[in-house]
Design a binder for these strands. Structure first.
Lengths: 118, 118
DNA sequence: AATGCTATATGTATAATTCATATATTTGAA
DNA sequence: TTCAAATATATGAATTATACATATAGCATT
């Protein structure tokens, strides 16, 4: 059954995956699975964490846009990983995201004000 | 040119149109164009306000879902309007939206905390 | 041997958004 | 008085994001 987010029971906030990923990479360079676990531990996307496939897709997109670079690390003892780090362009983008996220918050506050009327 | 919202320059917050519309209807029953102007005046979706076509689409969906009822008002002196009001189901939904929006805010705060690291 | 975790990726369906466009009436300005 | 702008609703089409399923594969534990 799809469709859990169409109504007022909305789970995750769309468009938050990208800045969340990039924020995680501010801590240190990480690979996708590690990013997913980090965000899950922080509880950003609820108890179940963000969808892994969405994270991998976003990572590939962000790389295509030049905001991240991924380095493939092969290993004989573990599955291959791609460790991503922020580029300068990615860091600039994060700065922009800061004001975007603050503007999201004030938009939400405006709606909440409406909902608390009366 | 499309594509203004894909990156960190994100404009409108998705999934905010529906609770915003329903919140406006808490003030009083209104028709679509009036809702659009009300939200625009409140600056919820930036200076340019929300896209009108999106509002009309959401109104029709919300009506289909039983959260609103629309009453067509024909007039000899003005274009026909559809005045919408919240149903009980719509009011229940709004209550749910309140906690959803607060959870959105805390998700955003978590990401902002990441971005402010160092 | 079987399960579960680590690790990445794609296919597909759906939902939401954006922009363009169509239609029709009314009001105000040049 | 003609033309533009505002009021009012709606649909078509493209894009983006999300969600869920699924595929693959190595490693660790029981």
């Amino acid at each position: 059954m799809r469709n859990k987010n169409t109504s007022c029971t909305g789970n995750n906030l769309p468009r938050l995956v990208r800045p969340a990923i990039m924020g995680a990479l501010l801590i240190r360079p990480m690979h996708g699975y590690e990013i997913s676990k980090t965000l899950e531990d922080m509880g950003i996307f609820g108890k179940e964490g963000a969808d892994l496939s969405g994270i991998y897709r976003a990572l590939n997109q962000l790389q295509k846009e030049g905001k991240l670079v991924g380095k493939l690390e092969k290993s004989s003892t573990a599955p291959a990983k791609k460790t991503y780090s922020l580029t300068q362009s990615g860091k600039d983008c994060l700065c922009c995201w800061k004001s975007t996220l603050n503007s999201y918050k004030s938009q939400i506050d405006s709606v909440l004000n409406l909902l608390n009327k009366k």
